[in-house]
Nucleic acid binder design. Sequence first.
RNA 1: GGUCCUGUGGCCGAGUGGCUAGGCAGAGGUCUGCAAAACCUUGUACGGCGGUUCGAAUCCGCCCGGGACCUCCA
Length: 499
Amino acid sequence: MTDSKLYIYNTLKRERELFVPQHAPFVGMYLCGPTVYSSPHLGNARGPITFDVLFRYLTFLGYKVRYVRNITDVGHLENDADEGEDKISKKARLDKLEPMEIVQLYTVAYHDIMRQLNILPPSIEPRASGHIIEQILMIEKIIEHGYAYVSEGSVYFDVKSFEKDYPYGELSGRITDDLQSNTRELDGQSEKHNPLDFALWKKASPEHIMHWPSPWSEGFPGWHIECSAMSAKYLGETFDIHGGGMDLLFPHHECEIAQSLGANGKQPVRYWMHNNMLTINGQKMGKSLNNFIMLHELFSGKHHLLEKAYSPMTLRFCMLQSQYRNPIDFSNKGLQDAEKAYEKLSGIYLLLKEMNWDGTSINPETEKTLSSFEDECIDAMNDDINTAIVLSNMFKVSSVVNQFNTSGKTEGVSKENFEKFKKTYCTFFTDILGLLPEANTAQGNEEFGKLVDSLLEVRNEAKKKKDFTLADAIRNTLSKFVTLQDTPEKTNWKYEKKK
RNA sequence: GGUCCUGUGGCCGAGUGGCUAGGCAGAGGUCUGCAAAACCUUGUACGGCGGUUCGAAUCCGCCCGGGACCUCCA
C-alpha cells in the first residue's frame, strides 16, 4: 500500500525528495484557489488539474488525504498603494452588483468548469470571507511576537524585525538587499516602515465597499494571510503539501511562510510544489496581449485564436502530456494533436472495459509488455508525478489491445496477467489521471442522436443496394456535424463541433 | 539590472553519463465499395564553442536564443 516510493520536487529544497507524510496514513494538502472575480481562464486550469492528479494518486496509494482548496472571495489589492482597491469590489462597482453577487456568480462558474474537467471536489473548500476572525487572530499573534506593526489603522508585517529571528526569502531565493534596491517607487508607501513590508490588514477607504470590523480599523485582510489562517485551521500549523502556480512563489508563498513562522514559530509546509505556467502560441497569456482565453471560450470555440472547440477532456489530456513543472505552450496544432491522442487512448479504454480473456497460448513478448505496464506507470508517477510518461506507457500497450480487438481474441497472454493489466489500465485512465470517455451524443442531446441514427438507416439501405453515390452524399452532408466510421456490423458516429 | 527555469528530429514532448521514449504529421504496404479506424514497415535529434571522461544529448565552463518572477496574475 504505502510502501510506494513517491518522490516529489520540493521547491523549498530545490530537489526531489522522498515523500514521507508527517502522520501517515494521513496527508494534508493545500492549494491556492481562485479569486472569484472573473470567468476562469486557461491558466486557472493547470493548478487544479495538477493537484487533482496528485490527490487522486495519493488516495490510490492508500493515504487518507485531506485536500483543502480555498476560494478567495475577499479580493486582493489591485496594487500596493494606499488607493489600492479590492479586485472584487472594483468589479462589483463596474457591474453595479453587490460584491457577494460577483463572488457567487464566479464561484458557480468555477465549480462548473471544475466539474467539466472532471476535477474532484476538495475535501474542504474554505472561503476567505468566512475566516475573517481566524485571520484577525493570526495577525494579533504576529503583532504580539513583534513581527508586525499598526500604522494608520492598517497592519504591516515587519520584514526587518522578522529577519532577526528567521530567514526571509528562502523559498524564492530572494535576498532582501536585492529586493530593497529593486523596489519600485510606489505611491502611498508612507505607512510602511520598509518597502518590503506587506499588509496583513488594510483600513478600508470610504469608497471601498468590502470591509469588516477589526481591532485596528474597519477594513479587510491583506493579500496573503487567508491561506496561512485557513491552512493552519484545517491542516494544522505544519502540514505536508502546499501547491500553487510558480508565479505565487514570490511574494505570496514567501509571505505565507513568514506569517506562519511569525505567528506560530513553525515552518508551515513540508513540501512546496509549484506548477509551471503556460503560453499561447509561445507568448505569455495576458489581457493586454489580446490572447487571453477563457475556459468557456475554449470549450465553445468562440475565440479569435481558436480554429475549433476543444473539449474539457482534450484540455485535461493536453495538460497531462507534459510534466507539471514544465511550461506548456497552447496552439491549435497542439490541441488538435492532443485531441487525437486522447481519443485513441479513450478508445482503448472503452475496448478494454468490455474485453474478456479468452486466450489459448502465451507469447512472451506480449506477456512482458502487459505485465510490466503497472510498474512502469507507478514508477512514472513516483518520479514527481510524471504523467507524460504514464501516457506514453498507455500508447505502448495500445496496439496490443487493438490487436486483441481486431482478432477478436486476447491471444498470447495469461488470464491472470490480462486481468491485472485491464484493471491497471482502467484505474490509471479514469481514477488516477481522471480521464473520462466523452459521450457520443451532442452534449447529451438525445434527439440529435436519434436524428443521426435515422439518417444512417437510410444510408445503410443505400449501401445494401450498392448505391454508393447516395451513401457518400449522406456522409458528406453529415460531415459538417458528425464523423462517420463504417465497420462490418454498423456505422459509428462521433459528434464534432466545427467552428 | 537581480533571481530562477529552459533550448531534443517537420511539430509537441520524455530521458539525464554507454542500452527503442511516446504522440501528431510524413512515406510505403495490408484491410475496405470508397472514406475512416486498425495493423505492419520506415526516416530525420539532442542550440554553439571548449573542457572532464574509455565514452556526453546527459557533468562543468563560456556564449547565443526562449521564458518566468522581481508589481495583481494560476
